[in-house]
């Protein structure tokens, strides 16, 4: 058995005998995956904080409150089924949004401006 310390609690087997690929039967049993977005305080955007499984939208938003805010009041939560999200790069492994340095003119630091220009 090949053992490596990985993950939080130390050594676990890491050899080829540990299966990783999912079997579809179990996936069908699972509740759908939801993505959770939380507005931490007024004035801020909702930010993606993680995901959870829930049978439906109503249960999802309440579970999100329990899990991701541990019931701190004053926040706003959005949940959306992961399957309903349209992403910019639908084809996985597509380097569409690979970092590229060829459009530097989009960035404010591209423009050299003397430091004594007010309010820039």
């Amino acid at each position: 058995m090949s053992l490596t310390s990985e993950g939080g609690h130390g050594a676990v087997p890491t050899g080829a005998e540990i299966p990783v690929e999912p079997r579809p039967a179990a996936s069908r049993r699972d509740w759908p995956l939801y993505e959770v977005f939380v507005r931490g305080k007024r004035g801020l955007n909702h930010v993606h904080v993680g995901s959870l499984h829930a049978p439906d939208d109503e249960m999802a938003v309440h579970a999100a409150r329990d899990v991701y805010t541990r019931r701190n009041e004053g926040v706003s939560i959005w949940v959306v089924k992961a399957a309903d999200i349209t992403a910019s790069s639908p084809d996985e492994k597509d380097p569409l949004f690979a970092p590229s340095g060829d459009k530097v003119y989009r960035h404010p630091t591209f423009y050299e401006i003397p430091e004594d220009v007010p309010h820039m």
């Binding site: 959870l52 499984h53 829930a54 249960m59 309440h62 579970a63 329990d66 019931r71």
Partner: peptide
């Protein structure tokens, strides 16, 4: 049943 419910019951 399910981890989400574990957290809710604990709350």
């Amino acid at each position: 049943p399910e981890l989400e419910e574990e957290v809710a019951i604990a709350n």
